[in-house]
Nucleic acid binder design. Structure first.
Lengths: 168, 168
DNA sequence: CAATATACTTGCATACTGCAATTATCTATG
DNA sequence: CATAGATAATTGCAGTATGCAAGTATATTG
């Protein structure tokens, strides 16, 4: 009654499984960044992402923001609320359609963004410094392909992945 | 008093920033997988990661598990608790040192793992199918480098990244 | 101008996390 | 061999995040 469990039919080694490897790098890099903007500005992850979006596209509405940084409407609303509380953003009713609130970055929001962006760029630079020029180029195109395919995988939910005959 | 915010000193475009791109792919791929094992087995993300570790290394103790899947001791303890409740794992005191509880996968845990692993492998296969052989090879070595560098970035906390002169 | 649709927002129940304090066990020392 | 101190893991609790139903404000349509 204590025999070892049967051998694996399908071996999946976590440390060699592509999604886990991507996750690991992302998580290890996100932790110090979150520590920085969290302790320095009291910003959450959603808050930072939204700040980055409105820094680039000032006056965006909540839907656009959500699309740009992969957040659902609830998270966007709360993140904007946080930015407004911190004085990093202001909401103003849209000019033509007042259901869409245009979110604008403030001067101090811009300052915070610049400091966080510098920190983030430094991290990115450290990562890229380990790669050859050829690897950097390949990584870029590879990531574009993975982004597109993972987006396809994500939409449609997990049930659509069970009865599969790899869609082209 | 309503002039547009000053132009960016340091432009960081979220969608082109390496850490975000990695995060995005990881998140888009993790969502359907989490949906699958969550709804099918009532497993949390930590539970799945731990299950994958003990499937590969049966009888590991909590510290080893934590190291293998980047979870802190609290999360490991709770995750094991969940697996035990679900009947996917058993805890047994270590043979020599009874402070170390050896965690073993059960037959039904193995079954669950195999099904989740098949699902995970299918996702990985879909991602890899989009890449050329050369890209797959380059991605592998690139990820090894990024894993190593991100681990270095992570240890030491964010403060060590401020006063930087990129350590070799 | 009611009825429906859209774009958010809020409230609340649940789940997750971080950390202090505990438990159980082992090691070292007088 | 008793006792003090380390170590591995667990538990309790407080704060926080998240998911979703319901609500508010605005616009559009018949």
């Amino acid at each position: 009654m204590r025999q070892p469990a049967p051998a694996p039919d399908d071996d999946l080694k976590l440390s060699a499984w592509l999604p886990y490897r991507l996750f690991l790098v992302a998580a290890q890099v996100a932790r110090p960044l979150e520590g920085f903007y969290g302790e320095t500005f009291g910003l959450s992850q959603a808050g930072w992402r939204i700040l980055a979006v409105i820094a680039e596209r000032d006056g965006a509405n909540a839907s656009e923001i959500g699309r740009a940084c992969a957040l659902d409407p609830f998270a966007v609303s709360r993140g904007i609320g946080q930015l407004v509380e911190l004085g990093f953003a202001v909401r103003r009713p849209g000019k033509t359609d007042r259901r869409f609130a245009a979110v604008s970055i403030t001067r101090s929001g811009r300052n915070a963004f610049n400091r966080i962006a510098a920190f983030g760029s430094a991290i990115e630079a450290r990562l890229l410094a380990r790669l050859s020029e050829a690897e950097r180029v390949t990584l870029d195109s590879t990531l574009h392909k993975l982004e597109a395919e993972s987006a396809r995988i994500d939409t449609g939910g997990w049930r659509s992945l069970l009865d599969n005959t790899a869609a082209s």
